[in-house]
Design a protein around this nucleic acid. Structure first.
Lengths: 353, 353
DNA sequence: CATCGACCTCGAATCGATTCGAGAGGCCGC
DNA sequence: GCGGCCTCTCGAATCGATTCGAGGTCGATG
């Protein structure tokens, strides 16, 4: 046995040598369709099996081919958090569906590496990228991707000139919800808002904060509400979750009943569920004393009510984004797509009085 | 303006040339910590900015470095389906948590490319792989990964000698659940089982089918139930979903009341919820006329009952797998981890009679 | 018998960056 | 004023596979 200090893994060259062919021929034998005689191909495969060669190295292959077969999905904040938000899950589901023809994998990427992150948007070997509710941070990354010629699709995300975007009618839909509350006779309406930017805060929001906000979805929905209720106070939350909704609910409801709003527009169903929970804990009847309207149209875990909400097609949004990716990679120029939400009237809203 | 037929993207070499340094120096300037003077580094960065160079190509970098910063998660079947299963979501969540120290991205891979899939387990540029409820198909892939020296961790998955596995006490837990039913006086108990292998079927399961099954989880849970009820009939489902549970529920319950089981052991909470739904549609009272026990301990969307179930720590399982990956990549030899489920007694089980 | 294809196989260039050891200056101390 | 050391920079090799055009062999045809 000769010295074998470095038990490296076999490479294509090793296989080729063992099979008595050139590396190029071996490569052809593996890629399948090349003009290689059956005998040769078999010999190469046999040599590979004997050496324990498991096929071409994906890294080298993707370098040479220029494609990795991976589509990145950029999530604001931690990857973990995305798994807790049913809307994101549904959207991811749709994306997976939409890119199915590519046979590509889905790489989940946090927007900003949390300090130690080695794999960032810029350093990930992706063929295309879908941005999901991206914040301001992404703008530099977007430039980097564009410089590298990587197709980008944005979902609810300002993504720059000429790039396809998937959106819904945040403003218009919320306005419709607010109008419905007005028809029910409500005059004192408050908004429980999604985060305004990537710095997560809680509590009442001043006009300056609104002006400085970067989260487009939050702003559009807020503007839609204020088109009907220009003076509606807004409470910011740190995330879209039931617990955050509950906290915001207490802020708005645990006050002198005279100062209490009669209706609350929550910017997500999870927040709405939290608000309803807070109301119940405070002995406030929903919808008798308080009407609550949500956004998303998900079914909230544990919520006993049929939430009045603005039903948005999350999965369809994801699918549209996936399809846009496919077309971009095919060299086409897909259009942006704007979806529409529908007002679902449940049992959490009622006529005032 | 000279002819510019191929508007290629700039490479490190271009930047180096523009900055008047060698490619090696430019590389050092980008990787940051190398012994490069500030003046030079600045010059390189300026040249890069001017050329619109967005940093080193991830593909080339990963080829040279031998690491891609990606951890693959192999899901049986379609990626899409995983997003619909709360248990998988929770586990993914845990994995993301566990590998956080790596700062790596999470690449979701279907077990078998659905025909056209280009990115398979073997051809994905991953540094490590977590197998999630993998089926038989994976075994070839596992060999390929091992041949390439890629660390593997299995969750509820036979993964081969010496590789760390994350498991729960499927057999023992189900036995405990069955014992509880026996204590309640039940004698006619049926099992609504998860899929037996990757060929999705529905309906009553014969002994031959059990013998030929490959899904370890299904088998272990079935064996646990049959330790107490050796003759318990089993119905196979095509997936873990409420709808599948409903279908199986009808199979078992839509019969002569004399032939009806008095209790059903469902192998997942979603299946249990479906069974309960079927019972309600058939006018069978739960738990009055039928006791139902689930597995997982998730809260099922829309289910009004507090399900009696075997609560398993899904997120912890994922986290343990993630941590095992981290340690494998650090050259350590992590142990397998076996978690324990606890019997949660809700209001879907009752004493017989 | 010579020539023309058809069919395989091979060499060499390429993808883009990283890394290691060597070498070139500049600065300090004696 | 000179040797030695330290700091920065560069060349060249390497990672592993793919691809294109060239060349070689063999059978068939005029």
């Amino acid at each position: 046995m000769p010295n074998d200090p470095a038990p490296r893994h076999p490479t294509l060259a090793d296989v080729a040598a063992k099979a008595g062919v050139s590396a190029s021929t071996a490569s052809l034998a593996f890629s399948g369709s090349g003009p290689v005689s059956d005998a040769t191909k078999e010999r190469v495969l046999a040599a590979a099996a004997e050496l324990g060669y498991a096929g071409p190295d994906p890294r080298a292959r993707s370098l040479r081919r220029g494609r990795s077969g991976i589509v990145g999905v950029v999530l604001e904040e931690r990857v973990r958090a995305a798994f807790l938000d049913p809307v994101k899950i549904r959207t991811l589901d749709g994306i997976a569906d939409g890119i199915a023809p590519l046979g590509a994998g889905l790489l989940l990427l946090p927007d900003l590496g949390e300090g130690e992150s080695t794999l960032t948007i810029e350093s990930a070997p992706v063929d295309a990228v879908v941005l999901l509710w991206c914040g301001l941070r992404s703008s530099r990354s977007i430039e980097a991707l564009q410089a590298r010629g990587i197709p980008i699709v944005g979902i609810e995300c300002e993504v720059g000139e000429g790039l396809p975007r998937i959106t819904i009618d945040n403003h218009e839909a919320t306005r419709r919800g607010a109008e419905y509350l007005r028809e029910l006779g409500h005059r004192d309406v408050a908004v429980v808002a999604l985060p305004f930017d990537t710095v997560r805060r809680r509590g009442a929001v001043s006009d300056e904060q609104v002006a400085a906000a970067t989260n487009v979805v939050t702003l559009e929905r807020l503007a839609g509400a204020r088109e009907i209720y220009p003076d509606a106070p807004a409470v910011e939350t740190a995330a879209s979750s039931i617990e955050e909704g509950r906290i915001a609910g207490f802020t708005l409801l645990d006050v002198d009943p005279a100062d209490r709003p009669t209706a609350i527009i929550a910017q997500s169903d999870l927040l709405a569920a939290g608000v309803i929970g807070a109301a119940e804990e405070l002995g406030i009847d929903v919808p008798g004393e308080l009407s609550v309207i949500g956004f998303d149209g998900i079914r909230v875990d544990g919520l006993q009510h049929d939430l009045t909400t603005l039903d948005q097609p999350s999965a369809a949004k994801g699918r549209a984004a996936g399809e846009a990716v496919v077309r971009l990679l095919a060299g086409e120029q897909p259009e942006s797509v704007a979806f529409t939400s529908t007002l679902h009237i449940g049992d959490t809203t009622a006529r005032l009085g």
